[in-house]
């Protein structure tokens, strides 16, 4: 194969992979802190896209997309915290007991609710804000400016996220709750507040992905469905609960999809990820970074 073309495919895969990471990190983060899987992750992605679109077209104007981004992320995070407080908090019957099926039922119901709400509010149409930036020539590959912005945005957000988790008191509290809820509780950490913040941050990452990708993949009521699937694929590839695993898994998935769709066939683009997933499960059942088990 033509090496230039191959480089182009690899670059295209890495750019997409970088953006997949945001989704995966959001899912795995919520899972590790709250020990629940948020099935509505894709819907928060979708809402992020709509908020970004509305902010740009109805208020800020296409030039001020960069201002709209943090606003969209904060809106989604605030919505997430509201959802957590009103709908998910009751999942913790006592201080520690969890009703797992409760979280599943609530978040799956939320996907239906949010999608229908989007249809009611905006109709079944696709929307897209204008590209954030003109195309960029990256070596042999001309890349859409919005993709570059989305990739850089994802990198900045992930960096920021890592900084908060590694270097701040909030991060310390989040990690302690993720690793041992009882231990965190004994230390005097308000678990319900940390859960709320964690959910807000996690869905905020999904919302950021949605807002960043609004001009790339369009905004429409079903836009979140696939991103949830991809997010989960990455998590299984990387290992549940592992942040570095999510990041490596995101890039891997992007690459496999990009190369698979040109080297084999694009009809099965979304199958390549599953192929990778099955291969990994066969070789390393806990995922790349997974551990045998974690203490509850």
């Amino acid at each position: 194969m033509d090496p230039t073309l191959l480089t182009q495919y690899v670059l295209a895969g890495l750019v997409i992979g970088g953006i997949y990471c945001l989704m995966a990190v959001g899912i795995t983060f919520i899972y590790s802190v709250m020990k629940m899987i948020n099935w509505a992750m894709g819907e928060f992605y979708m809402i992020g896209g709509y908020v970004q679109y509305v902010l740009i077209t109805a208020w800020l104007g296409p030039q001020r997309w960069a201002l709209a981004l943090p606003l969209a992320v904060l809106t989604v995070a605030a919505l997430g915290m509201l959802v957590q407080r009103l709908l998910l908090q009751p999942m913790f019957a006592g201080q520690l007991e969890r009703l797992d099926e409760y979280a599943t039922i609530v978040t799956i119901s939320l996907t239906v609710l949010f999608r229908n709400l989007a249809v009611v509010l905006f109709g079944p149409y696709q929307f897209s804000p204008r590209d954030y930036a003109p195309p960029v020539q990256l070596g042999p590959l001309p890349i859409n400016g919005s993709r570059v912005v989305a990739f850089l945005g994802a990198a900045v957000l992930l960096g920021l996220f890592a900084l908060v988790v590694r270097r701040t008191w909030l991060g310390l509290a989040l990690r302690s709750v993720a690793q041992n809820r009882l231990g965190a509780l004994a230390a005097g950490i308000n678990l319900s507040r940390i859960d709320m913040l964690a959910f807000g941050i996690g869905v905020g990452l999904a919302g950021a992905a949605g807002a960043l990708l609004a001009p790339v993949f369009l905004v429409y009521p079903e836009s979140g469905a696939l991103s949830t699937v991809k997010g989960f694929e990455i998590i299984v590839i990387g290992g549940l609960g592992s942040l570095p695993g999510s990041i490596v898994g995101g890039f891997l998935l992007g690459l496999v999809e990009s190369l698979g769709s040109v080297l084999i066939s694009p009809s099965f683009r979304d199958v390549y990820g599953f192929g990778l997933l099955l291969l990994l499960l066969a070789l390393r059942p806990t995922g790349l970074w997974g551990e045998q088990a974690r203490e509850a």
Partner: peptide
């Protein structure tokens, strides 16, 4: 292509290299 996939860049790059006279876009909606 798979209707649910959102990134068709690799396929389009391949087309670009082949330099066709016309590309027929048979996607519906998104």
């Amino acid at each position: 292509f798979d209707r649910t996939s959102s990134d068709l860049t690799p396929q389009l790059l391949k087309f670009k290299a082949a330099r066709p006279d016309l590309l027929i876009n048979v996607g519906v909606g998104t």
